[in-house]
Design a protein around this nucleic acid. Structure first.
Lengths: 228, 228
DNA sequence: GGGTCGTGAGTAATCACTCACTTTACCAAA
DNA sequence: TTTGGTAAAGTGAGTGATTACTCACGACCC
């Protein structure tokens, strides 16, 4: 097997382990087992456990799951409802997704807060710089159209509030720790969308007009009512 | 020293350690050092590291910081604005609090999600049963008074959304990992209150009428504009 | 002087990490 | 096609340090 492919397989396996057990709770032995290689080979590809973790965090920093779904569409035309619906829909879909990789990314984002504060700062800085202009622009457009009220002087804070709600909400729903009974999934998704949209200042009229129109083909709220 | 007092000192020290480093990241040696005792004595009081952790989590379960501030006042008369202001004010005060114990409790609540999913479920169940009726009643009163719109069929979900926002917001502001720049603290606190109050359905009129009146003498938003 | 409080050296297991070694992949000369 | 050389891919037993936890023993108390 080529070195690059092996590297990627190790990173993928390690991401799974770190997301599930945190940095301290993960052993290099378990990572090697998850990657189906010997422990020695692991250290041929990465100089240390910490370096492996740092590389995974840096990778996550570039590919924030929420962010990818938020910015997957044309930034200048996306409305707030589209943005929030995409974010919440993505989070809700994690529960029933066959591939749990993104779910693990969520956990990883939270664990990074506790394992490595310095990285978390870097992540917030980076994500903020990326999403900030788009979110602020969408909010400004909504305010100009009379569809939203301006709340506070820091529009980006509103995005973080929403981000936190989604992140922790996802954490409570992931299979490993489904500790919070939201009830009907579709209803809860709509409720969360409304919570966030109202929170960031959208008017009731604008929400009831635009919510649930599934305008974005890539990350729309195309959930079915099949889940428990 | 009496056995009970020593026990409490160990619990307090251990809580600090677990909150900072999680379960796997905390060593019994470090706990003993933090409690200024030998490692042997620690195991005279607690049969295992896991048992010590479980007892701390169970204790937290009984004394959720948000919850204590929410229910500290008369449940039947507290308005939604008072409840949310108390919760957010408490969270904002963590940053500048000389005693960091409550801040560590916040971290502990989040780490428990990852270290012990079963406990997290128990915690949510317990907190939900305690806060549920109070929150739902306050919300019903506000709706009846025409001060709020009903959003969804599960009023408790709205509380969890708020809880998550506060919890993660606090995590990003704690001294060990102040990774998110909210800007002016007073403005951010007001912004967060508005975000949550709007999110749970309060009307713009009700918010602007009641927000910032500091009606609760125990846990009101009596922050000064001194922080950065 | 029995009983609790407290210690610190000790245990086996596990940790991150290393190293001597074998296997595989690849390519050119015969 | 076969042969031989070589470097990378891969292994697994082994390293000292650290882990959770124990135990024999001393210090203080009523």
């Amino acid at each position: 097997m080529t070195s690059d492919l092996r590297r990627q397989l190790i990173l993928s396996a390690a991401k799974r382990c770190f997301a599930r057990n945190g940095f301290a709770g993960t052993t290099t032995k378990s990572v090697a087992a998850a990657a189906a290689i010997s422990e020695g080979l692991l250290f041929k590809h990465f100089p240390s456990k910490a370096a492996l973790y740092a590389e995974i965090l840096a990778e996550e920093c570039e590919a924030d799951p929420d962010l990818a779904h938020l910015l997957g569409q044309e930034p200048s035309t996306a409305t707030l409802v589209e943005l929030v619906e995409g974010m919440v829909g993505h989070f809700m879909r994690l529960r029933d997704a066959p591939d749990q990789e993104e779910a693990q990314r969520m956990r990883l984002m939270v664990t990074s807060h506790l394992d490595d504060g310095e990285f978390a700062r870097l992540l917030y800085d980076k994500v903020g710089k990326l999403i900030g202009p788009t979110f602020a622009a969408s909010l400004d457009r909504a305010i100009a159209a009379g569809e939203a009220t301006r709340i506070g002087d820091e529009p980006l804070n509103l995005f973080w509030f929403a981000h936190h709600t989604v992140l922790m909400g996802a954490l409570t729903q992931l299979p490993a720790t489904p500790c919070l009974p939201y009830g009907d999934a579709t209803a809860a998704e709509r409720q969360l969308c409304q919570f966030i949209l109202r929170g960031i200042g959208l008017t009731e009229a604008a929400i009831s007009t635009h919510l649930g129109r599934q305008p974005s083909p890539s990350a729309g709220p195309s959930v079915t009512a099949e889940s428990a």
